[in-house]
C-alpha cells in the first residue's frame, strides 16, 4: 500500500485534477485502504469548497462611495489636464 506520506505528496495535484495517472492511482488506492487519509482527503475537499463558495460581503456604503468619488476625481483630472 502507498504510504500516508506518498498520499500527501500527491494530494495537491490530485485535488487540482493535475495528477499524472500513476499519482492518481496511488492517491485513490491509498484513500480506499487508509481510513484516516480518506477523512483527510474528504475534509480537505470540504475546506476548499466552503472557502470557494463563500459570497464576498457587501462593502460598506461609505467605502463604495469613497471609491467611486476617487475614480471620478481621477477621470475629471484626465479630462482637464491643462487646469492642473
Amino acid at each position: 500500500m502507498p504510504t500516508c506520506k506518498e498520499f500527501l505528496n500527491g494530494l495537491g495535484d490530485y485535488l487540482d485534477h493535475a495528477a499524472d495517472p500513476s499519482t492518481r492511482e496511488l492517491v485513490e488506492r491509498h484513500i480506499r485502504e487508509c481510513p484516516n487519509c480518506h477523512v483527510v482527503h474528504d475534509t480537505t475537499k470540504n475546506t476548499i469548497r466552503v472557502y470557494r463558495g463563500e459570497q464576498a460581503q457587501e462593502i460598506a456604503p461609505q467605502v463604495a462611495s469613497g471609491l467611486l468619488d476617487a475614480v471620478q476625481r481621477r477621470a475629471a483630472m484626465r479630462r482637464k489636464p491643462c487646469d492642473q
Binding site: 500527501l8 495537491g12 483527510v40 475534509t43 470540504n46 475546506t47
Partner: peptide, 17 residues
C-alpha cells in the same frame, strides 16, 4: 506555489475540522 498551497489547505483543514 504547490507546496505552499498544500500546506495552506492542510492547515485550514486541521483548524476547520
Amino acid at each position: 506555489v504547490k507546496s505552499r498551497l498544500l500546506r495552506a489547505r492542510l492547515q485550514l483543514r486541521e483548524k476547520l475540522t
